[in-house]
Design a protein around this nucleic acid. Structure first.
Lengths: 153, 153
DNA sequence: GTGTTAACGTAGCATAGGCTACATTTTGTT
DNA sequence: AACAAAATGTAGCCTATGCTACGTTAACAC
């Protein structure tokens, strides 16, 4: 098969990207699919750690969506190579999925601790961290970690 | 008419939200539509300031999408009361749109300056700020501003 | 081993945001 | 005024992420 990847724009969309700020916006949008993968990987890893396995219903409760959404998304993540699953069975992470879960979790923790170190109340920090973590580059993450270390002395 | 707003989930989705972390995730997802409104409002305000008017093509170049996407989104934002537009004319912000643009712009600036104050390189900070700004609560924004003031002495 | 219930899967709908291709209107040139 | 080019609009397709409603399988009680 001719490797049916998602085709990048070739017409106006490509030609018109002259404004430098557009690049950041485009990157931010591209990031979106990965956000979901990160949230799922993190949640699956957590469920496996907590209860031994990740079931569709528990994942749904953990993520605040219906089991149908979980089912479809898991199928997509399986195609993408992050999880493995068989009908009516628990969901498992692939090696790649575990790697994603690990880095996501650690990044989440750093962002959360950093926000808390600024004096932000816990419930606010939790929600903000959830939204922010997916948009934090390695450089920014390192800066957060270093600021955290300084403040923690 | 019976006020056709977007209906909130009433079945499984509502019942199953027992996990506290789910709430943050649900909120983060709900935020999504507003992100676009903020990006558009900011871009439109900027174009009007820079060239006197905001045209569909310029907006498309500024946002890194095609003019078709801009056209459809502007229609949605008009329904939502953020912009006003007439066929083949420039796009204008409503009072609400201008308010959104102002707060978005100021928040963006605070986030960006805060990242820069941590020593993050400019091009990275720009991209990260673009992604992060939409997920920063008023509390966190205040914390950023206050940290910025301290560091800026 | 049968039957109920909970979990899982499937069908089908809606919204939102991308795109290309093509049609129409404005704008600007000659 | 007529034409060419640029801007805008429309049609139609795709993917992703939600949902409800309903069918199917597996787990568990008895």
């Amino acid at each position: 098969m001719p490797s049916r990847k998602k085709p990048r724009p070739t017409g106006e969309a490509r030609r018109k990207q002259r404004d430098p700020r557009a690049l950041s916006l485009v990157q931010t949008r591209r990031q979106h699919a990965r956000e979901i993968a990160e949230d799922y990987a993190e949640a699956i890893a957590e469920l496996i750690a907590d209860r031994g396995e990740a079931r569709v219903v528990d994942l749904a409760a953990r993520l605040g969506v219906t089991h149908v959404t979980v089912h479809r998304t898991v199928a997509r993540l399986q195609k993408a190579g992050f999880v493995s699953s068989r009908p009516y069975r628990a969901i498992d992470l692939t090696r790649r999925g575990r790697a994603l879960a690990t880095t996501s979790r650690s990044r989440h923790e750093t962002v959360l601790q950093f926000l808390l170190s600024l004096g932000i109340p816990e419930h606010v920090a939790n929600t903000d961290a959830e939204g922010i973590e997916h948009h934090v580059s390695p450089e920014t993450l390192a800066a957060f970690a270093s600021a955290l270390k300084k403040s923690g002395l």
